[in-house]
């Protein structure tokens, strides 16, 4: 196994790790808000569950990119390609956009989801507006994922 492969593996790990943490924290924040609302209005469970789930997507994006890096480097099949240190750093660089943006946007989206859940708690008819507001944060996670994929496939 070359040094380049190890650096690429670190890249795969870091994008799954950071975006996963971002999602976990975001879902936790939204979950606390959802628990507060449903403790008094259990019938709103369905509406607030959608909002709570939204910050979970960053973790999926990070995982997706990690799998793509593992496929590109042959690590997933157990026969890693022979890549240089510079190529290894390039794979690592491809992981950074979704890793960092995934971490921060997951938390930010969790906070927005919590506020939207509170809005739904007061006015259940406004849950669609809340979903739209929360989904807007997603845009930047998607852009980061695209950037990561473009870098990955240009190596």
């Amino acid at each position: 196994m070359t040094q380049g492969i190890i650096i690429a593996a670190f890249g795969a790990a870091i994008c799954a790790l950071l975006s996963g943490i971002g999602s976990a924290v975001g879902v936790q924040i939204a979950g606390q808000a959802a628990a507060g609302v449903t403790s008094d209005q259990p019938d709103l469970f369905g509406k607030v569950l959608v909002l709570q789930a939204l910050p979970g997507t960053q973790g999926i994006y990070g995982f997706l990119l990690a799998v793509l890096i593992l496929v590109q480097t042959g690590l997933i099949s157990g026969n890693p390609h022979s890549i240089t240190v510079m190529q290894g750093w390039a794979y690592f660089a491809s992981a950074l956009p979704i890793a960092i943006v995934g971490l921060l946007s997951g938390i930010a989206q969790g906070k927005t989801a919590a506020a939207a859940i509170h809005m739904t708690g007061k006015d259940p008819d406004s849950s669609a507006k809340g979903i739209t507001m929360t989904a807007l944060v997603e845009t930047y996670a998607i852009l980061a994922l695209l950037a990561s994929i473009l870098i990955l496939f240009s190596i």
């Binding site: 606390q32 808000a33 628990a35 507060g36 609302v37 008094d40 209005q41 919590a114 859940i117 007061k122």
Partner: peptide, 16 residues
């Protein structure tokens, strides 16, 4: 008790 939970519950109570 976290703020998101407390505020969630308060928002439900505010309806009354």
């Amino acid at each position: 008790i976290s703020y998101p939970f407390a505020v969630g519950r308060i928002k439900s109570l505010e309806k009354n």
